[in-house]
């Protein structure tokens, strides 16, 4: 797996995949739907898969002494690492953003707070569960897979924009300590959803790709 991850990083990964790890910087923008930052991370993952297809990565991997299922698992794991790194890198920007744009001033969606990261997990969960199984159905239809996944991600972005306006949920928009503590269970639930959806996505992707003739 280590060798496959190294191959993914050094041969398959697109430079923009790594650049979009810094999408957390978007959290400094005043009045912006911050979940769009996470969408850019999924765009970077799309570039990686497209790059792999164009560079015939599947054919190269198929003749290496590794199982076909491991090549899929490695790509899924690498995508997951990209997503988690992007979330981690976004944390300091969220702290900074909360200082620049004080409590409740983001009119375009959730403020840079714990609930935003919970919705971030949902963005990646929605992306993974649609994109990975769809791509590995053929091993080459990367554009259609990304389009389908983006529609699902768009729904989560709409959720991010709508949530602060739902009566009774103003605590979701707060950046103060009390609000953030109240948002923590939501973060846990969304992280669990992310883990379950990603594992499921990987499992379906492996099963589908086993049947593909290269």
């Amino acid at each position: 797996m280590k060798a496959l991850l190294s191959k993914q990083l050094r041969l398959t990964c697109h430079p923009m995949t790594l650049v979009f790890l810094l999408a957390g910087v978007f959290l400094l923008i005043p009045s912006y739907p911050y979940t769009v930052a996470f969408f850019y991370v999924t765009l970077g993952i799309f570039f990686m898969f497209m790059n792999g297809r164009e560079q015939r990565d599947a054919d190269f991997s198929a003749v290496l002494p590794v199982r076909k299922c491991d090549t899929v698992k490695a790509a899924c794991l690498f995508s997951t690492l990209v997503e988690l790194c992007a979330l981690a890198i976004a944390v300091p920007f969220a702290f900074l953003g909360a200082r620049i744009n004080p409590n409740g001033t983001n009119a375009a969606g959730l403020d840079a707070n714990v609930a935003l990261f919970a919705v971030g997990f949902l963005v990646f969960a929605a992306f993974n569960i649609v994109f990975l199984p769809s791509f590995y159905r053929t091993g080459y239809k990367v554009g259609v897979s990304f389009l389908k996944a983006s529609l699902c991600v768009a729904l989560v972005v709409v959720l991010d924009i709508a949530l602060p306006h739902v009566p009774g949920l103003p605590w979701l928009d707060g950046t103060d300590t009390a609000s953030c503590l109240r948002q923590l269970p939501l973060l846990g639930v969304c992280a669990a959803v992310y883990v379950i959806f990603t594992l499921l996505a990987c499992r379906i992707a492996v099963r589908r790709y086993e049947k593909v003739d290269l």
């Binding site: 280590k2 060798a3 191959k7 050094r10 041969l11 560079q55 990565d57 003749v63």
Partner: peptide, 30 residues
């Protein structure tokens, strides 16, 4: 089996923008 074979698929360019040494240093890990 795969550790003991070498495969050349004619007409397929793997990783055209990568240096040979980079491809070799990744390949050797397997």
């Amino acid at each position: 089996f795969k550790e003991n074979i070498g495969v050349v698929l004619g007409g397929i360019d793997f990783y055209p923008k990568k240096k040979l040494n980079t491809i070799a240093s990744v390949t050797k890990m397997f």
